[in-house]
Design a protein around this nucleic acid. Structure first.
Lengths: 128, 128
DNA sequence: CCCGTACTTGACGTTTACGTTAACGTAAGT
DNA sequence: ACTTACGTTAACGTAAACGTCAAGTACGGG
């Protein structure tokens, strides 16, 4: 099986539910670097994965330049020891950030659960 | 003990690490409604809590008008049955959103963990 | 050859969430 | 009386993340 399949910009946009403009903008920002056939963009599987990562980052509320850094970490060359230590440091930083977010989410979910309880109680009182 | 203590805009800004402008802007947007002593803003405990909720929403990447709606749900009057059903519906919607976010976070954390493993392996190879 | 469809690159418009002066009021300290 | 600290409103500026034209290119079908 060849996984040499490629996609047009419209196919990718359609698949991920974004506009063409969005994808072009991501390329302009260096988040995607599709190949070219003349002037046309050709997206390989790696590009699809990257787009998925970008959108996941967006759902998490990260700004695009942050997302760029994070994705950049994934495909950094092994490089020298200093680089590796720096990268590990960054990883730790991101992890802390994400764990803070998860705490915020859990707190909000718990607030919502409490709110729902009150709602259901009120509803029971009124319709019960 | 009276919990009648109040705060100035500067105290609140300082406590939460935001600027005065930010707080005034939140008021302008209807996210906060502090009392007044003449023209001066007087923040009660409820206002502090609300500011905390706003900032939590921000950390989660919600836009301010979304945050306004969510917070609005907390202090909605019990109201009529239709309102309650609508509110329960909204709660469900927010919950789904937050749970998607948590999945995104977990996926990212797992990516980071894998990346860290590879980093440590490389580091061992180089310094080992 | 013309048409429709898909693609391209500008370039300007828009919204959000504040930052940044500007110009002023008020109350306390010296 | 003067300064300093803290507050006010009004208004313009800005960066991010696209949306929205405008104008042109490339290609297969009829």
């Amino acid at each position: 099986m060849d996984d040499e399949r490629t996609w047009s910009i419209a196919e990718l946009a359609d698949e991920y539910g974004v506009t063409l403009r969005t994808i072009r903008f991501y390329e302009e920002q260096g988040l995607l670097t599709p190949a070219r056939d003349g002037t046309r963009r050709i997206f390989a599987d790696g590009d699809r994965v990257r787009l998925g990562l970008v959108l996941r980052g967006k759902r998490l509320g990260f700004p695009l330049d942050e997302i760029k850094k994070i994705i950049g970490m994934y495909d950094a060359e092994p490089g020298e020891v200093g680089q590796l230590r720096y990268l590990l440091d960054q990883i730790e930083h991101r992890r802390a950030e994400l764990e803070q977010r998860r705490r915020d989410i859990d707190a909000t979910l718990s607030d919502l659960a409490e709110l729902e309880r009150r709602c259901r109680a009120d509803l029971n009182r009124l319709t019960g």
